[in-house]
Computed example of a mutant assay.
Amino acid sequence: MITITKTFTTQAVQTQPNETQYYDVQAASFLQEVIESLQDGILILTKTGELIHANTSARHILAQLNKNDSYSSVVPTAIWNLCKSLLENKNSFPEESIVLSNEIALDKATVFRVRVRWLNVDQLHHSCFLITIENRYESLKNIALTEIKKYDLTPREAEIWCLYRAKFSYKEIANQLYITINTVKKHMKNIHAKRHSSDQ
């Protein structure tokens, strides 16, 4: 009986790591695909500022922030300053889970919301920064596109609504679309009427 138990235990120990390794590889591959497909940029940095990982969106955003068409591994100063601030706060409040955020505006239509948090990963044997970068205009544009379908807006109303959702003023919308402010107001009145009737 003792021999059978030992044999059973030995067999379980021999087969279990293979299954675990298979699921670990499968999970890692799945996680990589999810991270790469995200619209938001994901950066992982060491506490000295070395780039460990950047997904496709993050590489594109870094190129925009660094004013370079090609991928750059240079972390912009605005992001690194946020990381350093988090590190200072982490030392002051070691037990707290702190997330710092800030916005970086390149122009009216290109605003990035940056969030930095501390990430403890056992496999790396050290802590690092997890940075998410959201393109505010793209997020608002996606919301606006959903609303355009929901409210059945005309093509011109759709253009105006996208700019309005991106926080453009009526005057800025008029200038952008080469129309008068009164035309913008007329379209916005129609849009609000459609929204009101759709929500009832």
Rank of each mutant, 00 (worst) to 15 (best):
V99T: 10
Q14H: 00
I2C: 13
L38C: 04
L51R: 02
I52H: 03
S85R: 14
L153H: 05
A63M: 06
R115K: 12
F112L: 02
T3P: 08
T20E: 08
E147N: 11
S97G: 10
L130K: 10
N55Q: 02
L31C: 03
C128S: 09
V13G: 03
T56V: 14
S57Q: 09
I133W: 02
T56L: 13
L130E: 12
T154N: 01
L145S: 12
V75Y: 00
S139F: 15
A174Q: 04
L124P: 06
L87I: 05
A58L: 06
E103Y: 06
V114C: 01
Q11I: 04
K167D: 14
S139W: 14
L31A: 09
L140C: 15
N120W: 05
D69Y: 12
E172C: 01
I173K: 01
D24W: 12
E95I: 11
Q16W: 09
F93K: 14
K171Y: 12
R113E: 13
I44W: 09
K108F: 08
P17F: 00
P76K: 07
I191S: 05
T183K: 07
C128F: 04
R113V: 09
C162H: 06
L82W: 00
V13P: 00
N102E: 12
S169V: 00
Q39S: 14
N182T: 13
N175Y: 07
I98K: 02
R113C: 09
L51Q: 04
Q39D: 12
I44V: 15
L119T: 01
P17W: 01
A58F: 07
S101I: 07
I104W: 00
C162D: 05
T154C: 03
H187Q: 11
R59N: 14
N18Q: 14
L38S: 09
K6Y: 15
V184T: 05
L106Y: 02
L100F: 04
K171N: 11
S127A: 15
A105C: 14
M188R: 09
T154S: 10
N89E: 14
N55G: 06
E36Q: 10
H196C: 10
I181W: 13
E172N: 07
F8W: 12
N18I: 11
T183I: 04
L62Q: 00
I143R: 12
R115H: 10
S70N: 11
H60G: 08
Q32L: 07
I44Y: 13
A58N: 03
L100W: 05
P76H: 04
I79K: 00
Y164N: 12
V99H: 05
H187W: 05
I98G: 04
A27E: 11
A193L: 13
E103W: 01
T15K: 00
N190R: 08
H192T: 15
V75K: 00
Q39F: 11
